[in-house]
Amino acid sequence: MDIVNKWLVFWEKFGTGGAWQRVLGEGLVNTLLIAFIGLLMGIVIGTLIASVKVMPKYKLLPRILDKICGVYVGFFRGTPIVVQLLLAYYVLFPLCGINIGSLNTCILVFGLNSGAYVSEIMRGGILSVDPGQMEAGRAVGLSYGTTMMKIVVPQAVKHILPTLGNELIALVKDTSVVSFVAAIDLYKTFNEIGNKTYEYLMPYLFMALIYIVLVALITLGIKCMERSLRKSDRSN
C-alpha cells in the first residue's frame, strides 16, 4: 500500500529517526514564542495606540501622537507580514548595524505588526465602555491615564477577549512564513523532513494536525479566561 509506505518513510525519519525532537523542541517552541510574545507586545503597543486615539484632542501633543500612530498603523496594516520581515531582517537592521538574530527579529516584527491590529480592536473595546466610567474616575480626582488603565481598559479587555483570541490564532498561523528570514518554526522543521525523504504528504498532514490542535487549545484557553472575567457581570 502506497499510503502505508509513505507513513513508514515518514515515521522512520520523524519517530525513530529522532526528527520529532527538532520539530517539537525547536519548531513548535519557536512558533509559540513568536505568536505569544508577539501578542503580548501587540497588546501593550495596541493599548497605548488606542489610548492615544481616543484621547481628547484639544492640545497639540495628542494631535501629534495621533498622527504618528496613524502612520504606524497604516504601514503595518498596509503591507504583508512577509514584506515587513524581509525589510527588517535584510534591509533595516543591517543598515542600522543591529544583529539580534532571526528569531528575535521575527518576535519583534510580529509584535509590532500585531500592535497595529490590536490597537483597532482595543479602540473599539474602549469606545464600548460607558463614558460614565471615565467621568466617574475623573470626578474622584484620578488622572486620564490612571482612569484609563485601572477602569476603562480592564472593562474593554473583557469585551474584546474573543476578538483578541482571533488575533492570537491568526498570529500562530502567520508564523509559518518566518522561514523567509531563516527562522526555524513548525513549517521549517516539517519541510526539512520532506526534503530529506522526498516525501511531503505525511509531514504536511502532520503539520496541519499540529496547527489544528494548537488552535483548538487556544480557543479553549480563551473560553476559560472569558468565564473567569465574567465574575463582575451579574452573578447571583
Binding site: 460607558d130 460614565g132 466610567q133 467621568e135 466617574a136 474616575g137 475623573r138 470626578a139 474622584v140 480626582g141 477602569i151 480592564p154 472593562q155 473583557k158 463582575s232
Partner: peptide
C-alpha cells in the same frame, strides 16, 4: 481640586470592574 469636590451621577457610574 476634583479630589475635594465629590460628584454623584444620575447613572451612578460605579466602577463595574471593581
Amino acid at each position: 481640586h476634583r479630589q475635594r469636590m465629590g460628584m454623584v451621577f444620575q447613572q451612578f457610574n460605579l466602577f463595574n470592574n471593581k
